[in-house]
């Protein structure tokens, strides 16, 4: 019995340590997101060329969202197969929707 309690305690300590490490990762992710945001705003404020800035800020936004989904919303953890299917399904339809709306006004 004593041994059993001990192993439960060990497992809890292990999880606690793992969560702490993950929390550190989250803070780094957050710092990167702040940096991306500042880069995007500075590039626009600097008044650089439109064709150069727009693709970069869109890519920065996509990377930020990937960070948000995979780290803050834990999609990188296991047991997230169905959430991934739902999100990727949603994102594909979202992409088609935006494409359709833009092509509609092309002419």
């Amino acid at each position: 019995m004593a041994e059993n309690t001990n192993s439960v305690q060990n497992e809890l300590d292990y999880h606690k340590k793992k969560k702490k490490e993950e929390m550190k990762q989250q803070v780094i992710t957050f710092a990167l997101m702040i940096v991306f945001t500042i880069i995007a705003f500075t590039m626009v404020a600097a008044g650089l060329d439109k064709l150069f800035v727009i693709p970069i800020i869109v890519v920065l936004a996509i990377v930020q969202v990937i960070f948000q989904l995979y780290y803050f919303m834990h999609m990188s953890h296991k047991g997230h197969e169905l959430p991934a299917i739902m999100m990727y399904g949603g994102i594909s339809v979202a992409f088609l929707t935006i494409l359709t709306f833009l092509v509609l006004i092309w002419w």
């Binding site: 959430p83 999100m87 949603g90 994102i91 339809v93 979202a94 929707t97 709306f101 006004i105």
Partner: peptide
């Protein structure tokens, strides 16, 4: 639900961009 919300916001973004 979040997958559905993504599509819903996409339609609003598409409208705005157009």
């Amino acid at each position: 639900f979040l997958g559905g919300e993504t599509v819903l916001f996409a339609s609003l973004f598409g409208t705005y961009l157009a």
